[in-house]
Amino acid sequence: MIRFESVQKRYPGGTVAVEDFSCTIPSHTATVLVGSSGSGKTTLLRMINRMVDPSAGRVLIDDQDVATTDKVALRRSIGYVMQASGLLPHRTVQDNVATVPMLTGTPKREARAAALDLLETVGLDRGLATRYPSQLSGGQQQRVGVARALASDPNILLMDEPFGAVDPIVRGELQTELLRLQSELGKTIVFVTHDIDEAFLIGDQVVILRPGGEVAQAGTAEEILAAPADDFVERFIGADRGRRALRLEERDGTRIVVDGTGRAAGVLQAAEGDPAVPDGPAKDRA
């Protein structure tokens, strides 16, 4: 469990990134911090592995204040995936993945063998092991980034807009892959994004942030969609533009789901054992 207690981050010169943030992140679930630029979401994420130290307040992991831990040991025990994957360009994929275990004293041969298995875990071909990062596509690089973060078998996985730099199709694949991994591994994931749809997809818990790290609303996707706390949340999730208010219309005998602006969002499919609705390919899982 990760707990933020009245955390504040004020930079010299007076810029306030986070005013007063409190939140509890339960273990073995995915929590998504979502907000626009300047909401302090990355700052908050980095407080967990002490890449940023709070100016006031505490961050606790399993009731231990991270400020009392050794920075380097803490970071090695937490997986971290960043947007541009942050791979070392002069090392092969395999060596990139094996970096942290080798730092913590795993024998080289063992670490590299484990790295091969991890590549498979994240859905990469073992044959890519000897390539250099620049020889991979953006999506593949991102998968290597995830494999590296998992290499030390951490309980906590921090992900800072990990899928921000890849195209929408690859992003979709990576999101699905992450969900599959999470259902197998059950890590405590803290995920930062500015994409609310990604947040609703990934997060067991979604925390919507206002500028300055103020919590606008926290809850499950369903809770937030059902009862947006205020105008800000409504705007953020697109409810004010009618994106979330879906209704059925019938066209050419097919039931189409249409959003508040009148745009088709998808096709209504029959639930299993419901013969009332004819089958049709889902265009979009809205």
Partner: peptide, 16 residues
């Protein structure tokens, strides 16, 4: 710059 951050994030000491 990202390389510095990446190195720090995976737990390398400044000298490493």
């Amino acid at each position: 710059r990202g390389q510095h951050e990446a190195a720090a994030a995976i737990g390398l000491m400044p000298r490493q």
